[in-house]
Design a protein around this nucleic acid. Structure first.
Lengths: 343, 343
DNA sequence: TTACTTTATGCAACCGATTGCAAAAAAATT
DNA sequence: AATTTTTTTGCAATCGGTTGCATAAAGTAA
């Protein structure tokens, strides 16, 4: 245990002394307080620069009880989508003088709870969360609400009076996609869904079902398959489908990973897409453009979602608690039609 | 600007008062200092629990001048590999009582420099870095070295006497892959490389070249193509290859994204893999298993790399500066042979 | 010149945990 | 019982900005 930093740090007191003014003036000058004369500010900045001063966040945090830090909890960091979300958040946050602390729940509620504790102990000013696959409630965020620490959910959200949600219209997107499949001639459309406790999957399922209904097609219970949407699940589903006596003529997977794996396994079993069966996914993952045939899917931009989430949070932090904030912000999505659904 | 936290925070002083002991004892008790009697510790912990005490990091940081925070700068967070790396780092760090601050350079030196400044101002105790594509030097990390803040590079590294490197043997992996291609009958093997200033790409290139040389094959300058290894670059390269009078019989791309895109474009131009040409990549990205034919590639586990990097850094932080640390740690890799190179 | 604003700066008490050193309390030894 | 040793605990200064309030300086009006 040695002290890592040898040289003594320069403080505002050192600057004050060098300029024969008070530390208070230096403190105000450094953050551009209007009560300080411009000439004085200039001198302070110059001196700070000259002495190699660096601001001490902890002294400020200790005093102000704010950390200018935003916590981010996401299921995984391994998709282009998430990478974009984070990039968008970073951009907005940094411009507003906030830092990000990022952690992944790896899709388990257990880790998500641990992450929440960590964030709490790090005293983040606010929290941006996309829920894990297995999360069943949000009690682990209760301590944040108790302390009035703003909490915003994005993408995988949870409806709660205190927590704004940033989402896309999953229902509408799924509705559009399903309607399109019907329009392509499909009648027996199966849906592979994720955990229906997660809004994204329940909404997609509902959109799918409503589209069927509106087209006069009677939904059958065994058209719905719920699993973890992993590649393995996709393969399993394909095998299941091949074993059916009455096979579907289209499959709509709630994510691309699963849809692609399923489509490939179907192919290995002699089912050709799109000739014998249409397949569509959701997310516009890079693999959708690699797989043969290219996968029809729904695209939505992560960067925008990240920006909006961060901006909403920062507004909350700056304006104080007594302001009007939208309960839900819905972002754009778009249907991307590719070969996997073209007859 | 309202204070977000309404209720007064509980401090060690409150606990001390409640138990009629001193704050110093509480402070020591809470961190299990051996000089405190077990009975006293028990009372302290119980009281802390009862009062809803939470530790104030900033007061400690201010005092100890350590933050128990590790900075991580990576090019992007969007690969399974990076996600695993981060997960590995998180695991080791959290167990050792450290937190991670993560940021992405988005492959540009400019952003990487900004990230470095941020990390510096946040006073991370140490830094884990994988360099951006366009980074040409490491002057932006000089301030860390000046202050003796440990800096460790992983994967995309930079050799510097003060900075340990965590890598795989890129030379050997590329050598093995190339040798395998030769063994499959390939004689005119092209290599698509990334920026040769990055160790990973220069080493892979060198391994490729040495394998050719050892097999008695004369390397030709125009077998080397350097680009950004993006999908677009892969397509461009494929077109370039199709226009050649003497086409290669195998292509070794320095990452999977580029190799896959190239392979697909070749196919669109009537070149069939593996019949007409063998193709291999590097990284074992998910798309390698999705593309048809499946891509031969090199796998290495990110989780392990993240763990090792974090552990190495934490050792440095704990043991102080006067210890022996390996300059370079080399991790395992494995060749994954799939259909894209099977005749 | 005096009185009143407006603008700039300084004082000093925080924020909450840490730790070297001294002293008190308890245990062991003579 | 007195003394020495060991174990526990407390004192008080410290880390470095922040900010309400007071005061000084400069500017304007009367």
């Amino acid at each position: 245990m040695s002290t890592p930093n040898e040289k003594k740090e320069v403080t505002i007191y050192d600057i004050a002394e060098a300029l024969h003014i008070s530390a208070a003036t230096v403190s105000r000058g450094l953050k551009n307080h209007p009560a300080i004369k411009q000439a004085t500010k200039d001198k302070i900045f110059a001196q700070a620069e000259r002495m190699g001063y660096r601001f001490n966040t902890f002294a400020r945090n200790l005093r102000t009880k704010r950390t200018y830090t935003i916590g981010v909890i996401v299921p995984r960091l391994n998709s282009m989508f998430m990478s974009d979300v984070i990039a968008g958040m970073e951009k907005v946050s940094n411009e507003a003088g906030y830092e990000l602390i990022i952690s992944q729940s790896l899709e388990t509620m257990e880790k998500e709870m641990k992450n929440a504790v960590t964030m709490f102990n790090n005293r983040v000013d606010g929290l941006l969360v996309s829920l894990a696959y297995t999360t069943t409630g949000i009690d682990h965020f209760k301590r944040f609400m108790d302390k009035n620490i703003p909490l915003i959910f994005f993408d995988r959200v949870f409806e709660h009076p205190n927590c704004p949600n940033i989402v896309i219209n999953n229902h509408k997107a799924a509705y559009e996609l399903t309607s399109y499949l019907i329009q392509q001639g499909a009648r027996r459309i199966m849906h592979i869904a994720g955990n229906l406790n997660r809004n994204v999957y329940s909404q997609r399922f509902k959109g799918y079902k409503d589209a069927l209904s509106d087209a006069g097609i009677q939904f059958k219970e065994d058209w719905l398959i719920v699993n973890n949407l992993s590649a393995e699940d996709g393969i399993r589903t394909a095998k299941h489908i091949c074993a059916l006596t009455e096979r579907p003529d289209a499959i709509f997977g709630a994510n691309d990973t699963c849809a692609v794996a399923c489509m490939q396994e179907l192919r290995r079993n002699g089912v050709y897409v799109p000739k014998d069966m249409l397949v569509a996914g959701f997310n516009n993952d890079p693999i959708a453009t690699v797989v043969e045939p290219n996968l029809t899917t729904v695209n939505y931009r992560g960067h925008e979602m990240g920006e909006v989430a961060a901006r909403t949070l920062i507004n909350l932090l700056n304006e104080g608690s007594e302001q009007q904030t939208a309960a839900t912000i819905v972002l754009r999505h778009e249907l991307i039609i590719r070969d996997s659904t073209r007859r």
